[in-house]
Design a protein around this nucleic acid. Structure first.
Lengths: 123, 123
DNA sequence: CAATGACATCGACATGGGTACATGTTGACA
DNA sequence: TGTCAACATGTACCCATGTCGATGTCATTG
């Protein structure tokens, strides 16, 4: 079965529905909010954008993701942890370097919430 | 000219680009973050969803948007103000009632950021 | 004009979140 | 084994934010 493809973390991402069709439930709102809170920061949004722009949606933390930020190493590490805890990125340690990789399921869940219905309200 | 259709608030929504194509700029990130911060709350996400679900993407504050929330009137009013300040909804007072209406441009900007590229990382 | 109802605003409180410094952990290498 | 480099973690600080009660504003109605 294909269940094993998606880790348990997927549970919080499961029920994603476009906002505009019918009011989302409290549970759905809380699930999506976890993702949105993680993305609702300029630094993390840029980090996510940088990760996604790299080949394979993957980037090395200190190699690729430091440039352009005037922040300490611990702060960057903290932000990456927030993205990881939200299920937006996977972590892969190879030797000394740590690679962060975007999780398409998570970003897909966000995209689903804001899909079609949103720009054209119901009538 | 059609400029007048969109208020000055549009300025912060202007430059919206998919996250995955190339890294977004700091300015873009800060602009989008304003919208995301406003949406990254369970109550406000439900409010936005309820507003969008109503006919014409418009809903009366105390008539339509109170049901299902265990929050004080001032708290609901506060959340609606946050959505309004972010440019996500317009306010329209008709007599005693206040109607909140979704702004398609704002939701479209959010949707653009999370559009196509996001679920399928670059390769 | 007085009263009521539908909001917005203000002040206060508790909690959460971004940042940095210091320190811990782990793998590569001499 | 000792050192260094690439991280993560813990602690502390400060500011932002969610919540509520009280009050203010304004339109309707009697």
């Amino acid at each position: 079965m294909s269940m094993s493809l998606i880790p348990a973390r997927e549970a919080t991402l499961g029920s994603c529905t476009p906002l505009a069709r019918e009011p989302i439930t409290t549970e759905q709102a809380e699930g999506v909010t976890r993702l949105l809170k993680a993305l609702a920061d300029p630094v993390r949004l840029r980090l996510m954008s940088m990760i996604l722009s790299y080949e394979g949606g993957e980037a090395c933390a200190m190699c690729d993701l430091t440039e352009g930020f005037d922040l300490s190493q611990s702060t960057l590490s903290h932000h990456l942890k927030v993205l990881h805890d939200a299920g937006l990125v996977d972590r892969d340690k190879r030797g000394v370097w740590v690679y962060y990789k975007a999780r398409p399921e998570a970003m897909g869940a966000v995209r689903t919430v804001f899909s079609s219905g949103l720009a054209e309200p119901q009538d």
